[in-house]
């Protein structure tokens, strides 16, 4: 093969493999060598690719079939899904003998995205179907077996109200998430004082409940709390975190909210929400921001959770180019730390 052709093929990020009529490897480009690390010249193609569909497609092309494509998952260091294009080619140096050129397009990310979308739709339909089942069942019961049973009607109506509220909350949260993802690429640019945001949330959460308001201890150093952000979204973040802290900790215990410049860096402001709840088993922590991941489904339902609160927090922080860290120990409570880009105070 000409040197110039080789350098073109080596410049491609797509693995390329050329095999001769006996399915022996006659050429691999650099990307191909990086992927099939155990491959050597003159090896049989079947020594590095065990996938039968890929081998059969190559054999057929070498037998005279036209160009073809197969989708395969190859077991490398990490199993990878490829769309493999197999085309016939002749090699001048070998008296125009028929060869096959294979190019491997990595489609793992497409398959992963499809799988995620599929799982998400399945989860949403499950989450909506539970309250819907209760509603449909209560309506049927009230129209039939419970007709005229005033006590049952009263109780069922109360349950129906809670189930329909749950559906409404779920739909609100789903819309919230979808809007967030749509604008994730454009980071906010306004300057927001995090102290104002937190104080507003504490007032709105506490409402007229003085006891609840007293549980939330806010400690903020004034003047060091300006961040680049979107006020409404940050409100959602702290509403979620403070509400969770209250709901998951014993009645009467304190929830501490602190805000300060992040340690070792003046580029970020760190806001911590600390509760005195049961703490979280470390196995759950990495998955807490996944949609519909719940440690205790019954408890989440009892406090009106949709399973999306922390996913919303995560996406808002991605939008802000910030981050969330969760520290917890069983029996010793949890701290949710939010890092946000500080506004320049020059």
């Amino acid at each position: 093969m000409k040197k110039s052709v080789k350098s073109i093929l080596n410049g491609l990020v797509v693995p390329i493999l050329i095999v001769d009529g006996k399915m022996r490897i006659s050429y691999m480009n650099a990307a191909s060598m990086a992927h099939f690390t155990n491959a050597k010249a003159d090896m049989l193609m079947s020594d590095i690719i065990e996938n039968q569909r890929c081998l059969t497609a190559t054999k057929r092309v070498l037998d005279g079939d036209p160009e073809t494509q197969v989708e395969v998952t190859l077991q490398g260091v990490v199993p990878t899904s490829f769309r493999v294009n197999v085309a016939p080619m002749t090699v001048e140096a070998e008296k125009d003998a028929l060869h096959a050129i294979l190019s491997f397009e990595d489609i793992s990310h497409i398959r992963e995205a499809e799988q995620m979308r599929h799982d998400f739709v399945a989860n949403v339909s499950h989450e909506l179907r539970s309250p819907l089942t209760a509603l449909v069942g209560f309506i049927e019961t009230l129209q039939g077996p419970a007709k005229g049973d005033a006590v049952a009607a009263e109780r069922f109506l109360g349950m129906m109200e809670r189930e329909s509220d749950r559906m409404a909350r779920l739909i609100d949260d789903l819309l919230s998430l979808s809007k967030l993802q749509a604008r994730e690429r454009d980071a906010p640019s306004a300057v927001v004082d995090i102290a104002d945001v937190i104080n507003d949330i504490v007032v709105s959460l506490g409402g007229s409940n003085e006891h609840l308001r007293e549980r939330i201890k806010v400690s903020i150093v004034k003047g060091e709390t300006k961040v680049i952000g979107d006020k409404n979204e940050l409100g959602q973040v702290f509403q979620n975190l403070i509400e969770n802290a209250i709901k998951y900790s014993p009645d009467g215990s304190d929830v501490v909210v602190t805000a300060c410049a992040a340690e070792k860096s003046d580029e970020h402001i760190c806001v911590c929400v600390t509760d005195q709840g049961d703490g979280i088993d470390p196995v759950h922590i990495p998955r807490l921001t996944e949609r519909f991941y719940r440690i205790d489904k019954g408890r989440s339902r009892a406090i009106g959770g949709t399973g999306l609160g922390l996913a919303i927090v995560k996406h808002i922080l991605i939008h802000h180019r910030g981050s969330l860290k969760i520290k917890s120990k069983l029996g010793e409570g949890s701290t949710f730390s939010v890092y946000l880009p500080a506004a320049q105070t020059a």
């Binding site: 309250p131 069922f156 189930e163």
Partner: peptide
């Protein structure tokens, strides 16, 4: 699901 359990019980 408590609501569904209640529905079935009744």
């Amino acid at each position: 699901e408590p609501a569904q359990a209640e529905l079935l019980r009744y």
